[in-house]
Structure formats: C-alpha cells, structure tokens
Design a protein around this nucleic acid. Structure first.
Length: 275
DNA sequence: CGGGGCTCCTGTGCGC
DNA sequence: TGCGCACAGGAGCCCC
C-alpha cells in the first residue's frame, strides 16, 4: 500500500508523537500471533521507551530503549493509527501517557514484529537508498537500472535498485519523462534517465507535501486520507485522454502490475538517441 | 544472481 | 437486483 511518501508521512508523525514515551502494555486482537512471541514482546517492548522512529525503504522502524526494534511493513493494506481506531486492529501498544498506537491490517500481508539490531542491519543490506536520498547519485541510478535486462517499470519497483518507489509513483514518473513502461532498461538514454531520476524525486516530494495518496485504504497516523490522488498525472486514469496529446490512455498489466501510459507520448520502440 | 511467475489474504466494485 | 470474478498501494519465495 504505502510507497515512500506514505511511509514518511506516517513515520515522521509517529516520531513526533511517540518519542520518549514508555510502552506500558501490548494487546492483540482477532487471534493475531505476535512475532517472534508474546514473551519477546513482554521482555523487550513492554517497559521500553521509544528512542527513535525511522525507515528503511518502505519498512518503518521504531527503536526501543531495550535496544530492539519494532519493524513494521504495511505492505498493501496496513495502517499505523495513533489514538485512532478502525475495524481491522491486530495489535495495540499503550503508552504510559494514556496515548496508544494501533497496527491495523486487512489482507494480513504486512507485519509488525520485534527485531534485534542484527536482523535490521541484514535487512538494510538488502535494500537500496531511497529515491530521494541525498547520497543517491544519478550515476548510481543509471548503473543500477542499466545492468538489468528487463523492463524499466518493473525495475523502478525493485527496492534493491532504488527504494521507495511503488506502482503509483512509477506510473506517473514514467509518464512525466515520456518513457514507455515496457522499454528495456538498456534502451533508455542517459538524458532520459536524467529526466526520470528528476521526475521520480519530484513526484515523491509532491506526494510527501500532499501527505500521501489515498486510493482506497491508505490513511495517515490519525486516520486521515492524503490528497496526492488529486494530483495524479496518469495513474488510475484508464478512461481519460492524455493531457498533452489527447490520445486515449492505455491500461494493461505489465509484469502483473496495473500500468497506465500514453501510447503516443510514451513510444515503445525508440531508436536510442546519441548523447 | 537475474528473471519470471506464483502466492500470501480480504474487501470492493464492476460486468454479466 | 444479485452473484461471481477480477483486481488492489507490496514483496518474498521458488524454479529455471
């Protein structure tokens, strides 16, 4: 569900709310099983204080005074809710301030677990810098993508190359840069990559400004929707015409993911230009 | 290791 | 109107 803008909206608010607060109680609902165990939560979560809230790619991490980390991936339908309820709460953490944090999940794809530092470091090692990381260079971006012999859209979604981009922002960034989602990565010129790199960052920063995109279930820490869905360039616009050229927008599955593009502006077969 | 395909699960919305 | 079948923001795993 959430891509980087949604993850950052939630993790930044959670840091503001929970930093320094002590967790007094953990409860589960709907027979939800804690991972690794109830005992582990009792030993390392209950009685601990929140030291930091951050993220690794789309994973939200809560550093505890016990030196363990709550690692939660919301995946498609998860939510973190502060002093807020919904019908799908699986885990509730109570703070001694009287405030509480709920973990909610509909499709049960995500998780809310306690990890030690070693496990978190290992996870970090498997993921790339986020698309808006100041240390991510255009060269990193191009080299990572070019070494793959597969479609650009699929690789934009690969969190091991660049992290934080999901299906919505990938569709919009490719449209903005006029790159067909089905082009192979090595057919894309450096100037096209430069444009794509800039537009990926632009679209993610816009998403952050708008506190995320709410299509269906995404809500922020307070249960409120984001507004970036009102600014989509092409995602979800199946029956619309391209704003630039008037062509009917194409919708099809690419590697199993819903994909929107303008067949005129985002040409599939392009002779690589010289640069 | 890269690539493709399948799968986890529930709710919703569309088409027949 | 009602039912059944896609389809959904993600990513891990397995097989070639």
């Amino acid at each position: 569900m959430p891509e980087l803008p949604e993850v950052l909206t939630i993790s930044r608010d959670l840091k503001k709310e929970a930093l320094g607060k002590k967790i007094s109680k953990v409860a589960t609902f709907a027979n939800y099983k804690l991972d690794p165990s109830n005992e582990y939560f009792n030993n390392y979560v209950v009685g601990s204080t929140v030291k930091d809230v951050s993220n690794v790619a789309k994973l939200i991490t809560i550093k505890l005074s016990s030196e363990k980390y709550i690692a939660t991936h919301l995946n498609m339908t998860g939510r973190l809710l502060y002093n807020t309820e919904d019908p799908y709460i699986k885990i509730r953490l109570d703070f001694d301030s009287g405030d509480y944090l709920n973990y909610s999940s509909v499709r049960m794809f995500g998780y809310f677990e306690v990890w030690d530092k070693e496990k978190l470091e290992k996870y970090k090692g498997g993921y790339a810098k986020t698309a808006i990381d100041k240390d991510l260079t255009l060269e990193d971006f191009i080299q990572g993508l070019k070494k793959r012999n597969s479609l650009i859209k699929q690789n934009l979604l690969d969190q091991k190359l660049v992290s934080g981009i999901g299906n919505i922002y990938a569709n919009d960034a490719l449209y903005m840069s006029k790159i067909n989602p089905k082009r192979k990565t090595h057919t894309i010129s450096n100037s096209e990559y430069k444009s794509l790199f800039e537009n990926v960052q632009k679209i993610i920063n816009e998403g952050i400004e708008h506190r995320g995109s709410t299509i269906d279930r995404y809500a922020d820490l307070y249960g409120k929707p984001g507004s970036h869905q009102n600014y989509f360039r092409i995602y979800g616009k199946k029956n619309h015409k391209c704003k630039d050229c008037g062509t009917q927008i194409t919708f099809e599955k690419v590697q199993g993911r819903g994909t929107f593009y303008c067949p005129t502006c985002q040409k599939e077969n392009i002779t690589p230009s010289l640069f």
